[in-house]
Amino acid sequence: MKFKIYRYNPETDTKPFVQQYELEGVEPGTMLLAALLRIKDEQDESLSFRRSCGEGVCGSDGMNINGVNGLACITSLDTLKQPVEIKPLPGLPVIRDLIIDMDQFYKQYRAVKPYLIVNDPMPEVELAQTPEQREKLDGLYECVLCACCSTSCPSFWWNPEKFLGPAALLQASRFIEDSRDQAFEERLADLEGPFKLFRCHTIMNCVNVCPKGLNPTKAIGRIKSKMVTRSL
């Protein structure tokens, strides 16, 4: 099986280049991460990428695979056209090989105050929440912060400083929808203006690439309609 992988080490390379690798005896059902680990172990220890859980829960190994963002550990090689072309996630600076600098992405995550805000005194037991209220968080809380969505979004590429991007907005929605949260007004007010939220042009790349099957565009739509209702 053939692979073409983006390589760049700022200490030794003046510009990025593509390196080819070949693996023998790849069994059906093998995930891309397993192949990358084999290349690193057997052929080239300098090939650099992030990885951890190997089952799509930690969000470490987001990369651009044959032109589509995804997690290497849950992308089966069976589904990929050869040679498999692997690049770092687009739109953020490359540190080395497939490793990108995610500071901007995390900064935008922090910008939406991604934590529960409760102003009332806390009870000695749990805050009550009905199953129906809790169900509103499904499809929002499962995000693994892999950045596949935001780095596939043209609005994010063009305005990374101003547009919060699908991942951060999904988090904003996760707290806006939480029946326990008491910062509803403040959260909506924070998203006012032409850029932070409204730069989303519903291109829906985020939905197409999310490895967890989440729908940031829909979440953004929910926030928008809440803003409209609020302004009436």
Partner: peptide
């Protein structure tokens, strides 16, 4: 209280 989205029972617990 930190915000963990625990699954819930009908009585909200």
């Amino acid at each position: 209280h930190f915000g963990v989205p625990f699954s819930r029972l009908d009585n909200g617990k």
